[in-house]
Amino acid sequence: MTIKEALTTLPQYLLPHHFLSEVMSKLTHSECKIWKNLFIKTVINLYNVDMSEAKDHNLDRYASFNQFFTRELKEGVRSFPTAANAVACPADGAVSQAGAIKEGQIFQAKGKSFSAVDLLGGDTVRAQPFSDGIFTTIYLSPKNYHRLHMPFTGTLREMIHIPGRLFSVNTATTNSVPGLFARNERVACIFDTEAGPMALVLVGAIFVSSIETVWHGVVTPPTIASVREWQYQENAPVLERGQEMGRFNMGSTIIVLFGNDAIKWEDRLQANQQVRLGEIIGKTQ
């Protein structure tokens, strides 16, 4: 850990993560026109948000900052592959890491790893299909589009809401906090696909006011003390590749897991690589 990373990370252990996120939620959902427009313009300028891709670039038509943050894209500015074996990128962002899951361990950064069992809520049976599979972790910055889409067609099997802290998920914190993505509050969605099981894990972070899915709505808040689970059997939702599956109300990270010998990532899918929603990141084997 560098001195800069320490100064960024160590104070976070003392912060009241969920309280701060609740305050941010109230601010981002405020419909005070002066406040929300100031907030929107500040973020656009600070992070160089490309509003030319937004379906609606008139800031007055966003009732709150959160509506702006989860804005839709114009039709046609992103496309998804048509080849049956293609795996699409689920979000705009940057690759934090990508590679093999080795004996159930997922690489985080700088010698730090976390287990698939911990990531998926402590259930060894749930995690077993991914124990020697592959993963990619994609970080969404404030400038990115914050809706998440299906990388591969799947039938929803279960959803798990796992309690935890809300550390930042920026590079400094990822390099410094052991087991970060298995410590933060998160929502794991397990799908059955033609390539075997696929897990999409939506990881919360400081100031992420909520995580929601298209079939359930807002999953968090509320803050919880123990794991919550939803099983889907009869009439389970089937989501096609490219279909919206969820969103972050404020930004964070999505982790994609596949099982052993199911998918081969594209060679260019490396740490720090910028990625765009819909581009091919892998293919079935």
Rank of each mutant, 00 (worst) to 15 (best):
H161P: 01
A182S: 15
G122M: 01
F19S: 10
I162D: 01
D92C: 09
A172L: 14
D50Y: 04
N37A: 11
A83V: 05
P163V: 08
T284K: 14
L269A: 08
V219K: 03
T213V: 01
P142Q: 09
A98H: 00
N260E: 15
V187C: 02
K4T: 14
N144A: 08
K283L: 07
F248V: 02
V187N: 02
L27C: 11
L20F: 10
R61Q: 14
W230F: 11
S115A: 07
L46F: 13
K102Y: 02
E75Y: 10
N170S: 08
P11S: 10
W35F: 15
M245C: 13
Q285C: 12
V77S: 12
I101M: 09
A88G: 01
I255C: 05
Q274M: 12
E244A: 15
Q233D: 13
V77L: 09
K112Q: 15
G242N: 04
V201L: 03
F181D: 01
C89N: 05
M250D: 02
A88V: 04
A182Q: 09
V203K: 05
I254M: 00
N144D: 14
N66K: 00
A109G: 10
R157Q: 14
T223K: 15
P222L: 09
L59I: 15
S64A: 07
A188Y: 04
S79G: 13
N144I: 03
P16F: 07
V49L: 07
L73S: 08
F191A: 08
I101Y: 07
R147S: 02
M1D: 11
F167S: 02
Q270P: 00
E75Q: 11
K26H: 13
F181C: 04
L38W: 10
E266F: 05
V219P: 01
P142V: 08
Q285L: 14
S226F: 07
S176V: 08
E75W: 09
D118L: 09
D132M: 12
T153E: 04
S79F: 12
P90L: 07
R147N: 06
Q233W: 04
G204P: 02
Q243D: 14
R61S: 15
V177N: 03
Y62Q: 09
K143L: 11
R186Y: 00
L46N: 12
T137L: 08
Y139D: 01
T28C: 08
E72M: 09
Q108F: 08
V43Y: 03
L46T: 15
G278E: 01
G122P: 03
L277A: 13
Q67N: 14
G259L: 04
